[in-house]
Amino acid sequence: MSQVVDDLKFSQTHEWVRLGNEQTIVVGITDHAQHLLGDIVFVELPEVGAQVQAGHELAVVESVKAAADVYSPVSGEVVEINDALTDTPAVINQDPYQEGWLCKIRITDTNEVDALLSAADYKKLVSEQEEA
């Protein structure tokens, strides 16, 4: 069973969100998602300043056998990206919830965060998918 961190929010498409200060949140992909992809070899990050919409493509994470779109869990403006991933994408495999974060987004609508899954709900989703 993949690890799920309790104080985060989650999307149906396996992104996590950490609430930061003010209106800024941190986004990454979950432990379950990095397991499914396998060894990550490349990450294509958005540009700082880009406007993103909830449910739309935010980044691309590539393994040897797959290229997965990462969807933005919320709408807003990208204010910071994790540049370290360009040289060491494996960090996402090793530490998806901390060092492996993708970017920070200044959100426009806090309701979107509230609508995301809780850790308990996401655990249920993952266990269902891992069963199948």
Binding site: E62, S63, V64, A90
Partner: peptide, 9 residues
């Protein structure tokens, strides 16, 4: 068996 992860990274 070849390390294709290394090849891509």
């Amino acid at each position: 068996r070849l390390d294709d992860v290394r090849a891509a990274r």
